[in-house]
Design a protein around this nucleic acid. Structure first.
Lengths: 209, 209
DNA sequence: TAAAATTCTGTACTGAGTTCAGGTTCAGGT
DNA sequence: ACCTGAACCTGAACTCAGTACAGAATTTTA
């Protein structure tokens, strides 16, 4: 907190240094998010209003909505730094693997990125089904990036195939989340996700019954 | 409108006769629905309020919400009679076909059931993306039935597989809806849906690239 | 035709999300 | 250090979706 020898020279090993403004912004984001998750996990999603969250986080209701576009978003959105990691994952993804395999890898990496928040999120989903519903395609933070990544790897004129691949991968991932018990280990969740992706990619028509 | 010789004897060929109460209810449902679709397709989903719809349909705002659980529902929900047809389809579905094939057939039948409203709906989706998002799993009317149908055909302990199959089928169906141009023929949509279902069921990992 | 059951309506409320004018804080140049 | 413009935060006022409820109107039944 007390300016510790970071005078003028940007020695920061990872990325560039953040100005005061940006640091405060990130801090505010995290304060709001953690306050929200705490209140919501204590009282339930519906029992907590945006006003409650804002007040408790020491910020105005209006400010809440400049950070999060909806009340649900505060549960779903990726931390800005996680988002950056996710973008790096996408950028570094190998270009020679078959599409579905590469996609499987990405989705599993994403899961690991979310690891610490997933059990809580799953518990919130169990509490309020409507929250669960709205999560479907409000993969606001990573969805668009991933779509673009797939599109870039898709030969022209096969947008249908690209869309199908993405939607199916999401379906598999969501199925794993639905099936997972948050009291089980995270590795168990990864196994579930792997299974779902393998089955969905490998041909459901061919599987048992 | 003027009671036309339906005195007391229920001669109605299809199902049992409806009492005055039930007839009025169905009529009100359809008035609200068609009014809503007309207004919304004229002005856009966001530009029309529930109040507008209710007033124009000659009914109170409160009544609107006894018929439709949300503003979106008035776009999605199945007509009560269509819902009945859909249930009959489920009941009559052959039990010997492999699961994925049977499911494909059902989904395609469902599409035909929705045929006349689909172009309009697709146009509305294009107008307001948020409406589109919310449609994901707000398959409120037929979703639960279909899930139950699949569950009944699934051996015990394989709920994961059942969920995966359903979610993947929805993903394929939604992909077809997304890709479809409502100015194209409905048959073209059916072809798209068929393709998506075949690909998703047949193994995306095996397909090109 | 009277009583019982349903349905409709107006009113009032909560809470999400937006807009906006004005105040506060930060960044960069002098 | 100071000034200026830009970014940011805030409170207030607003729209609209969705819910609760009490009483009026209508349909059913007996």
């Amino acid at each position: 907190m007390t300016g510790s020898g970071q005078g003028k020279t940007p020695h920061c090993p990872v990325g560039r240094v953040l100005g005061l403004r940006e640091r405060k912004k990130l801090e505010a984001w995290r304060t709001i998010r953690s306050t929200a998750l705490r209140l919501i996990s204590e009282c339930g999603f519906d029992a907590v209003s945006v006003e409650d969250i804002a007040t408790e986080a020491g910020v105005s209701r209006t400010t809440f909505f400049t950070y999060f576009r909806s009340k649900e978003a505060v549960v779903y959105d990726l931390d800005p730094q996680e988002l950056q990691q996710w973008r790096e994952l996408l950028a570094d993804a190998p270009g020679d693997e078959p599409l579905w395999e590469a996609l499987t890898g990405l989705v599993l990496s994403l899961a690991e990125l979310l690891a610490d928040r997933l059990p809580l999120q799953k518990r919130l989903f169990q509490q309020s089904p409507e929250l669960c519903d709205s999560s479907r395609d409000v993969c606001d933070s990573f969805g668009p990036d991933l779509r673009e990544w797939v599109a870039r790897r898709t030969p022209d004129g096969d947008e249908l195939h690209a869309a199908l691949v993405i939607n199916t991968a999401f379906a598999a991932f969501n199925t794993a989340i639905e099936a997972w018990d948050p009291d089980d280990s995270f590795d168990h969740f990864l196994d579930l996700a792997r299974d779902c992706l393998r089955l969905a990619g490998g041909g459901l028509a061919r599987s048992v019954s």
